[in-house]
Each structure stands twice: as structure tokens, then as C-alpha cells.
Computed example of a mutant assay.
Amino acid sequence: MLDLHNLRLAENGVPHLDSITASFAPGTLTTILGRTGAGKTSLLRAIAGLAIPDAGEIRLDGADWRRLPPWKRPIAMVTQQFINYPHLPVLDNVAFPLVRRGEKWPAARDAARAMLDKVGLAAMVDRRPSQLSGGQQQRVAIARALVKKAPVLLLDEPFVNLDYKLREGLREELVEMLRTETGTTVLYASTEPREALQLGDRIMLMAEGRLLDAGDPRAIFERPATLEAAQVVNAPPINIVPLEIDTVARMGPFGTQELGALGRDLAPGRYRLGLRAGDIAPGGPHRARVILTEVSGSETVTHLDLAGLPLVMHEKSVVAHAPGSEIGISARLDRGFVFAANGALISQGASHG
């Protein structure tokens, strides 16, 4: 078991890790989701011994890592960059970590050859890294990490520098390989909610060095504990609509609306309604101006302005909404999440799968 307790790290007064406490069981893959600057890399570097926490504990099976140098920690790490040894052929790139810990070159090369076969590079063992594509270089880095058979594997956005299709394929291959590495504790940092939700057995949400929530990915997606957690776990971004309850429910430019069960137990006051982009649809009584349209594969994300309220609409088809044009929209307000003034979730609609 990998245990973190009250881990704190700051640079120039800026907190990178703010009292992080978490446990990671052997054989599990935990995705760490957060935007750039959330503290994901700082957390992985602290575990690897590449950053020294100001306070807190890191333990593996009870052993204290606070004074253990990086080279003595039983971890393997893959980063965003293709960090390979340019002067060594692919085979020796992968074999080198085994030789460094005392294995003979013949045995290390045998293990490296077997791992390169697993990552689809068996025919390229004699090439130099400069003779490989970006995707192939990252496969070499992954093979070098996996061949160590370390009990802890840290993956810091390993495919972020690759194109979309290649990233998708390598990610699926990596997950398949990790399933055979039983007993390995895997931490995978990502800025992409869809990737994090699909990959992990567990998910951790981070923002500004803080741990926002942790647990089952589907449960956290369906019921984010706070508005901040909802903003991190949703892509496209969740829409925030002002909500005021007195004798009726008023929702900014949406006007007076019926919330049904969603607002039944709400006391009079001011709230914020979180509404997923997929719950806004074209066609309806509300006139919104198109700011920007983004097409990704077979889906369209449209940024809108509804009387000064920014909105994002997600359609599962390719649609050309011209920037500057006006379109009618409707919103499934009954499917929203109601957050209190302090950001805590206090009510939610149905069907958030």
C-alpha cells in the first residue's frame, strides 16, 4: 500500500501540494485529474523523490520514504517528454535500468527484448531513438519503465505530446499491458476528464494543490461534491447559471423556471445551478449568440452568449453554427446540480449518467 499523509509542498509561497492525504492499493490504477498547475506533477515528483515535501509522509508498505533518495525508491516513471538515451540503441535503452541495479547485460537484454515485443517494437531493437517517430519513442520510454517491474508506476501525462489518434491507441495498449502487471500501483496524471474517467479504477480530483475529491470515477462524475469538483470533472466545461429562490425560481437570462423535484427542498436564497453542456440543445425559446464552434471528430462544442451569460452547448453531431449568428436554444434545467454559496452540492436532478 502506498500511503501519503498530510503532504505539503510550496515554492516561493505558492502551495503546490496542500495537505494531501491519500492511499493507493496494489493492483489499482488511479487517475489524478486536474488542470495545468493543479499539483499533479508535484505529487508524482514528491513520490518519486524528485521534489522534497515541506511536511508530511510518504510510505510504501509502512516503509518511510522521507530520507530515501530517488534512485533507491522502487518506482518507475514516464513523463510527457520522450526521455531516452540518444547514444544507445533501443534494446539497451530498455535494458539499462536493469543493468544499473545489478543485472548482467545478457539477462537484461533478454528482459528488454521481451518487453519491446509487448509494446510492438521487436523489429526496432537496433535503432537509435532519433530514428523513431514520437509515438515509438514514447513506447521505448514505457517499455523501460515497465521492464523494471517496480511496485509503483507513475505516469505524468505520458501521451500529451502525441496526436489524438496515436494517443488513443497507445493509451488502450498501455491499459492492456498494465492488466498483466498484477500488484503494481499505478498513478496516471491527466488534464482530460474523459481520459481520467475511462482509465482509472479510482480518480482523484486536484486544484491548486488541493485534493477536491477521490473515489469511484462514475460516482464522482454523477455526483460531484462541490462546484469546483464539477468544473474539473466535466468536459466540455459545466455551465454555471445564477439561481435565486423566493416564491419562484429565477435563473438569470433563462427567467422564471419550474425546477420540479430539483428545487423542492431549497430554502429561499441565492444558489448556482451547474448544467452540463449536453443538457443545452439547439432549438428553443432562448436566443443566444454564437461565439465559437469547435468540431472534434463527430461532435460539436459551441460557445454561446445568452444575454451576457456564457454557455457551452455539446452536440453529438457535426454542426456549423456561424460565429456571430443567433440561434434558439433550450435547456434541461431539471437535470442540473444546485450548489450553495460555499460551493457544496445540495441538490441534483436525475439521469446524470
Rank of each mutant, 00 (worst) to 15 (best):
G255I: 05
E244L: 11
P237G: 15
E228L: 13
A225Y: 08
G269V: 07
D279F: 15
I245C: 07
M251F: 05
A267F: 06
G260D: 07
E244Y: 08
L262S: 03
N234W: 01
P236C: 11
F254M: 05
R218Y: 03
Q231R: 15
F221Q: 09
R264I: 10
I238T: 07
I220H: 00
A277G: 12
Q231N: 11
Q257Y: 03
G255T: 04
I280K: 01
G255E: 07
E228I: 13
V232N: 05
L227Q: 15
L243A: 03
I220P: 00
G255L: 10
V248A: 14
A225E: 14
N239E: 07
A267N: 08
V232C: 11
I220R: 02
A235Q: 13
R276C: 10
T226F: 13
A261R: 11
L273D: 02
E228Y: 06
F254H: 02
E228C: 12
T226K: 10
A225V: 12
L273M: 13
Q257R: 14
R250G: 02
P237E: 14
V241S: 04
G255V: 06
T256R: 11
R276P: 09
Q257D: 05
R250P: 02
R272E: 14
G278R: 12
L259F: 00
Y271N: 09
F254K: 01
P242R: 07
A235I: 05
T256G: 02
A219P: 05
V232I: 15
V248Y: 11
A277Y: 13
L243Y: 01
I240F: 08
L243K: 01
G263T: 06
L262I: 05
V233L: 12
F221N: 06
E258G: 08
Y271I: 13
Q257L: 15
A229S: 15
R272Y: 04
I220E: 00
E222R: 08
R272S: 13
L227H: 02
V248W: 09
R250W: 06
V233Q: 00
P224I: 04
T226P: 11
T226L: 12
L275M: 14
D279V: 04
A261V: 08
A230L: 10
V233T: 03
I280H: 00
R223L: 07
E244I: 12
Q231K: 14
E222S: 06
A235W: 10
E258R: 14
I280S: 01
I238V: 15
A219E: 13
L275C: 08
F254I: 02
I280V: 15
R270Q: 14
R218L: 13
